[in-house]
């Protein structure tokens, strides 16, 4: 058996040892070293906890009948659809600026790119908060149709992955692939949320405010 993956010291490869470590290649992968995977434990467990809390609240909470609405829109569904659309556009800025910072786009990464990345990310997640509060409060975690189930799961995944990313960022001891992978999960989950709600609304009810 050829096994070239870096393994944490103290866990020798054996034939019945399942390949649980991430399979590369990842940019900037360094040998995690001792304590690297435990270093991920806090962010990952924090994210898991938030995702589970959101899902359980959405399932157990008796759906409300009224929520604060925003003037100028035809209804809460469209407020949410447009807020999610704004978040997805900001997330594209996130993706491009991250690719630049990791040297995948362009030859250099000016310092303003990381500022742009930080603030577009903050704004993106902030505009999703009214949406998720409405979703959780009025609808909860639903599984009536595949679309609703995927949307509910993606919502929990999005905030769980976001929490994991925020908890990982200040840590210097996490593996190099952590931020790209977790950021990719956040981005993918947000796109899934947009596809299963905003795009669905726009195609079934028309594109308007």
């Amino acid at each position: 058996m050829s096994n070239t993956e870096p393994r944490p010291a103290g866990s020798p490869a054996t034939d019945d040892d399942p390949d649980t470590a991430p399979v590369g290649p990842f940019p900037g992968v360094t040998s995690p070293g001792r304590g690297a995977l435990p270093a991920l434990a806090v962010p990952v467990l924090g994210g898991l906890a938030l995702a589970v809390v959101l899902g359980v609240y959405g399932r157990l909470h008796e759906p409300g009948t009224v929520a604060v609405s925003v003037a100028g829109f035809s209804g809460p569904a469209y407020v949410k659809a447009w807020l999610t659309t704004v978040a997805v556009l900001l997330a594209v800025v996130q993706l491009v600026s991250a690719l630049n910072m990791y040297g995948r786009i362009g030859h250099a990464s000016p310092s303003w790119v990381s500022t742009l990345h930080r603030w577009s990310g903050r704004l993106a997640v902030l505009v999703t908060v009214p949406v998720v509060v409405h979703c959780l409060y009025v609808f909860g975690f639903g599984y009536d149709s595949p679309r609703v189930l995927v949307h509910s799961l993606a919502g929990c995944l999005f905030y769980g992955a976001f929490a994991t990313k925020m908890l990982s960022l200040p840590r210097r001891d996490v593996p190099g692939w952590t931020l790209p992978v977790v950021g990719g999960v956040v981005f993918s989950a947000l796109v899934a949320l947009w596809l299963t709600a905003a795009l669905w609304l726009f195609t079934t009810r028309g594109v308007h405010l």
């Binding site: 903050r122 997640v125 908060v129 925020m166």
Partner: peptide
């Protein structure tokens, strides 16, 4: 520590809206 602040701000905003 700013990511912690961002996370806290999101949680607080969510709870306020709720």
């Amino acid at each position: 520590r700013t990511p912690y602040l961002t996370l806290a701000a999101v949680v607080v905003l969510g709870l306020v809206l709720l």
